[in-house]
Design a protein around this nucleic acid. Sequence first.
DNA 1: GAGTGGTCTAGACCACACC
DNA 2: GTGTGGTCTAGACCACTCT
Lengths: 245, 245
Amino acid sequence: MTGSPTFQPLYEQIKSLITRSLVLGEWKPGEAIPSEMELASRYGVSQGTVRKAIDALAAEYIVVRRQGKGTFVATHTAPTHQYRFLRIRADDAEPTSDRHHPRTKFIGLQKDKADANIAAKLGIRVNQAVVVVSRVLVFDGRPLILDEITLAQSIFPNLTMEKLVASQGSIYSFLETAYGTRMVRAEERIKAVGATKHASKHLGVAIGTPLLSVDRVAYTYGDRAVEWRRGLCLTSGYSYLNDLA
Amino acid sequence: MTGSPTFQPLYEQIKSLITRSLVLGEWKPGEAIPSEMELASRYGVSQGTVRKAIDALAAEYIVVRRQGKGTFVATHTAPTHQYRFLRIRADDAEPTSDRHHPRTKFIGLQKDKADANIAAKLGIRVNQAVVVVSRVLVFDGRPLILDEITLAQSIFPNLTMEKLVASQGSIYSFLETAYGTRMVRAEERIKAVGATKHASKHLGVAIGTPLLSVDRVAYTYGDRAVEWRRGLCLTSGYSYLNDLA
DNA sequence: GAGTGGTCTAGACCACACC
DNA sequence: GTGTGGTCTAGACCACTCT
């Protein structure tokens, strides 16, 4: 007779509890979470229910299962997952080939205040402090992508060029180890644009050259937007890959 | 001591059996497949194992579950799934809004022979007969996408302009009802290019205007490639959306 | 061998659709 | 009410990893 209008399965609730522990940092990226049996007794449910909750988290790449070893908090630091969100591949390479590590050239870092657009995308207030990182990604010696990455200072304080340059690998890997904030998913909006003067300089092409403009909002646990970026991408010999299902 | 090197779970085998029935047309798109209990007794396994097989098929949108009613073969004919693979959205629309049905303007249909590139993509022999359909998709009165769609005649025989024009809705919906071939997934490769003379004419923009070039290979059951297309897409006021996970 | 995730089963009960 | 898919449980056994 309670008449709960919104029925929520037990495994969804368990999934939320596990996610909550991830947000609170009880288990850090790369670490193992407790075994299914342990979690089952902790939450007072059967192992099968915990399993279904973890299945859902594994499907979202929030955790990774390894048979015989345990279940681990997913991370961007592993070489194979460094550039998990990067969809650019050489046209002559296999889509599945993971050997495409670009080299990063940092260009600048400016402190700024959020305008209305960025404030809306990041869910912060207008004029709140942000950091804008500019960089170029170099593939096989060719500068292909010019990125402008905007982060809220409240979440990523004391970010400096020195730290970025010192960090190896992807920026997500760095943010994860330095601030404990892991990017879980992202939304991209793609357009075709002509190269601006600024882009033409950094990518070494003529002004007006067609480029992909890739806008991205990246989210951490609990669908919280924590990054906005715009990438300008040269696509001669390279393409943006997407699987539709 | 048999030492089976490649262990395959029971539910994977059941999944293959169900897929086989789909390929053979035992259950047509839109129809219900037998209940879990029926399939369980047919294959001599428990209901839970059948459930797991169907779960996998449902995750790939090959079948659709409806609580209380049954499990149905997925289809492109439902209004909400007509343009399931179309990722273009108006910038001012919600990404989730499904009200974006474009209008189709067919331009031409030519019979041709597969060149090396198309033969490789479609897995057919060079010089095998193909049909190339040209069309423009019109959004809100504006011509946005110029498509060139290549299909093997062996799979889609007797395709004519009349039939296409007479068909309502998406081309996948038509191919599904007319030939029973359902597109299950697709791979796209995206580049930025300048509008050719041909494209500029049909999209009403200047030559050289930056466009998205979207190459697609679409697959039916069993990962069989059955369509190759190239779309040229104008992105003023509209974007290509992609979710990264 | 001990511990982990992975599979399979059998049965109970819940939520939903149709009659 | 009957039949469907959806959830939850309990237990058995398999496959993998490490010691």
